[in-house]
Design a protein around this nucleic acid. Structure first.
Lengths: 143, 143
DNA sequence: GTAGACCTTGACCCCGACGTCAAGGCCAGA
DNA sequence: TCTGGCCTTGACGTCGGGGTCAAGGTCTAC
């Protein structure tokens, strides 16, 4: 199948497939006229990539899974390297959730205090204290 | 005081202050020779901005707090607009934490299954199911 | 008068994962 | 033959929050 069909079947765009190819993540064979040519196995690789991306994996982190599938394993996570990525991701998720929860706590406290201050029609205290270094990206997915 | 001193006292850089000025977030007066000139109030505004940024607020989200302080209120969160931002942020945090927790769950499950499959020396099942649309940025803060 | 420590604006660079042209090649149907 | 729909490569834009020059102006101390 050609690039347009693969993109459609995987629910993505041709631009994305060319980008993956440029990373060496999903190389394509070529037909006589230079068109990219894909088969059902490529679709499976692509689905693996998209699935992991939906889980918040970076593209580079999907590479072990793709390699694993390509080397004949039945699932992308049948290989040790993939399991290692899973574990790293779990740790990352835990840390991120922990940070966000701590911030949530502090923001909630600030809101409570500020609301009470307004309710009492009193001047609020000074600015909130400086947090040590809590940064996880919070921005929701772009349009 | 001039830009260098303000930057140092706030623990940031002159570049950052010029950037904030370009956004209209922290405008500066000018002395005769064109140098930027700041006072203690500007330091307070800047501290408010940095504090909120440490909480993961985007710069635009700090604007209501800064406006609030500039209009004479004792704290940046003394104004309704600021409280509104607090509430939005709380909702955002809750959603983000929820998403990440759900993903954590799924990744954990995947890992368990894959590990058990390997332990049994059996082939794992097919690729993990497609998640609906769970994207929070997970990347840790840059260096 | 001159070093050097500050300041000015302008411009380009970074990250990730693509989106969005632009200019042109290939192929099928009417 | 021509139109329209695919495909190709290449190059630039996006977003946030600044970093990092470069070329030059200003002030203070010696």
């Amino acid at each position: 199948m050609r690039i347009g069909e693969l993109a459609e079947r995987a629910g993505t765009t041709t631009r994305t497939l060319r980008y993956y190819e440029s990373l060496g993540l999903l190389p394509a064979r070529r037909t006589g006229n230079g068109y990219r040519s894909y088969d059902e196995d490529d679709l499976r690789l692509l689905q693996q990539i998209r699935t992991l991306r939906d889980f918040g994996f970076e593209l580079e982190e999907t590479r072990p899974f793709v390699e694993c599938l390509r080397s004949g394993h039945p699932a992308g996570d049948s290989c040790p390297a993939s399991l290692e990525v899973y574990r790293r991701k779990l740790a990352e998720l835990d840390e991120c959730i922990g940070r966000l929860s701590a911030i949530r706590e502090r923001v909630g406290t600030q809101l409570d205090q500020a609301e009470r201050a307004r309710a009492r029609l009193e001047a609020a205290a000074t600015a909130p204290e400086r947090a040590p270094e809590p940064r996880c990206e919070l921005t929701p997915p772009g349009p």
